[in-house]
């Protein structure tokens, strides 16, 4: 549960520092370190320079897309295919930014002021922002998100370099374990944030639909997983709300007049 440690007072700098603290004590600090050690080692395997590897973390900041780029950029790379694969693997960034913005934006926020906070957005930052931002006054929410985002992005970039130089020393299983930490952390952190039927249903439907669509060979399977799974979950949520409302409006005496 988000503790109201940082209540209604304080400054924007205080909110930023609060974000830094939340990031460093989050499960995602561990997840990002582990992920990017694996990613740095992968870049070394594929012959990229350490500067390139670190810059790719700063610029892309999306684990699965980075892995696709590195493994897809070999000799005889299919440029367009790789670009499409990178893009499709990052579709989730669109709804997480849309879902977060109305919660953190101020009346007078200009779009260009949101480019940097939006760049920090990744599932890790989103999960912590959705947990903690509602407990903060609106004017502190963007500094808070920036604190979480910049901290995790910096950790990711530094540990890309660490992994790059540790490559030879890493056990054989490390690469597999580092790649597995993305799905397991996404799963449990999203489940932790899922408080209402809407999110629980969306989580379950996404887990079920993705393999069905992928094995059926449907193009853009992740995109459809999101749209179909999300829409079904939303409809389920509406249906549940409708039932609760009609149960509330029809008390015991009116229900007795029902046929």
């Amino acid at each position: 549960m988000p503790e109201p440690a940082f209540a209604t007072s304080g400054t924007a700098a205080g909110a930023f520092l609060h974000g830094t603290r939340v990031a460093l004590t989050s499960v995602f600090a561990f997840v990002i370190v582990f992920t990017y050690i694996g990613y740095g080692a992968l870049c070394h395997d594929y012959g990229f320079s350490v500067g390139w590897a670190m810059l790719s973390t700063v610029l892309q900041w999306a684990g699965p897309a980075q892995v696709i780029l590195v493994t897809g950029l070999g000799p005889g790379a299919l440029v367009l295919e790789t670009a499409i694969a990178v893009s499709l693997s990052s579709v989730r960034l669109l709804p997480i930014v849309v879902a977060l913005l109305p919660m953190v934006r101020r009346e007078n926020s200009r779009p260009w002021q949101l480019v940097i906070p939006a760049h920090f957005m990744a599932v890790s930052v989103w999960v912590e922002a959705m947990r903690h931002a509602p407990t903060l006054p609106r004017e502190h929410r963007i500094p808070f998100c920036n604190g979480v985002g910049l901290t995790l992005l910096t950790l990711g970039t530094v540990f890309t370099a660490v992994g790059y130089y540790m490559q030879a020393a890493l056990p054989a299983l490390f690469g597999a374990a580092a790649m597995f930490i993305t799905p397991i952390s996404f799963l449990v952190s999203t489940a932790r944030n899922a408080r209402i039927l809407l999110e629980k249903a969306a989580l379950a439907l996404g887990l079920l639909l993705a393999p069905v669509l992928a094995y059926a060979g449907v193009g853009f399977d992740l995109l459809w997983t999101g749209v179909i799974g999300g829409t079904l979950a939303y409809l389920l949520h509406r249906w549940q709300r409708h039932r609760q409302r009609s149960a509330k409006s029809s008390g015991p005496e009116s229900s007795s007049t029902m046929p």
Binding site: V91, A202, G226
Partner: peptide, 11 residues
């Protein structure tokens, strides 16, 4: 809901 389903899809 779409964001959550998409994240689950990535998993």
């Amino acid at each position: 809901a779409v964001a959550t389903a998409l994240i689950a899809g990535v998993v």
